[in-house]
Amino acid sequence: MPDRKGRYIDMVKKIFAIMLLAVLAGMPAFAAEMYDYNSAEFKDNASQFMCMCGCGQDHFECNMDGCGLNDSFKTEILEMMNDGMTQDEIKNHYTGMYGEVILTAPEKKGFSLTAWITPFAALGAAGAGVTLLVRRWVNKSRLNTDHFEDSEPKDKESELEEEILKAMVDEERKKYY
């Protein structure tokens, strides 16, 4: 009797193992997601490359009539995605083929990092230079004005002349305005 029970358990284990293998063998078919032109992953992949037809748009947004490059490029990307290639692998494939010219944005490493940093650094340096120049001009004009005011003592006569001149200017303004 124990021998029969042991065979029964062995048979159940074998059936369970076969069923488990069948399920595991079918998992890649279920796990492989099929992408289409409307999927977000496809948009991310296609929009990282510039269209080479001269429209200035990325491959996802290119809508130029007769752009045969865009249709074949989109088809290639979709095939690569459905074959299981990652976004980085697709990017490396096309940058190896066309160079960094095909990318919509330069990579943030190596020499390409200069393309990201240089405009902001130049703008910051120019802003700092203009600020220093304006401060120097303001300080220089203050020194000149202070020196001029200190060197010329004001007396009652000059103050009276200034008031008369201001009154005359105000009268003339009233006539024309």
Rank of each mutant, 00 (worst) to 15 (best):
P2Q: 12
R4F: 11
G6E: 11
D10Q: 04
V12C: 14
K13S: 14
K13A: 14
K14Q: 09
M19Y: 02
L24Y: 12
A25I: 08
G26H: 14
F30E: 04
A31P: 03
A32D: 11
Y37P: 01
S39W: 02
D44H: 07
N45A: 12
S47L: 03
Q48D: 08
G54F: 01
G54N: 07
C55Y: 05
F60Y: 15
E61P: 06
C67I: 00
D71M: 12
F73L: 03
T75N: 12
E79R: 08
N82F: 00
Q87H: 06
N92E: 07
H93Q: 04
Y98C: 06
G99K: 00
E100M: 13
E100G: 13
E107W: 05
G110T: 09
G110V: 09
S112G: 08
L113F: 12
T114G: 07
A115E: 11
I117N: 11
A122R: 10
A122N: 07
L123V: 03
G129D: 01
G129E: 00
V130N: 06
T131E: 09
L133I: 07
V138M: 05
N139W: 10
T145S: 14
D146L: 07
D150W: 01
D150V: 02
S151V: 02
P153G: 05
K156G: 15
E157D: 09
E157P: 02
E159V: 05
E159L: 14
I164F: 06
K166M: 10
M168Q: 10
D170Q: 08
E171F: 06
Y177P: 04
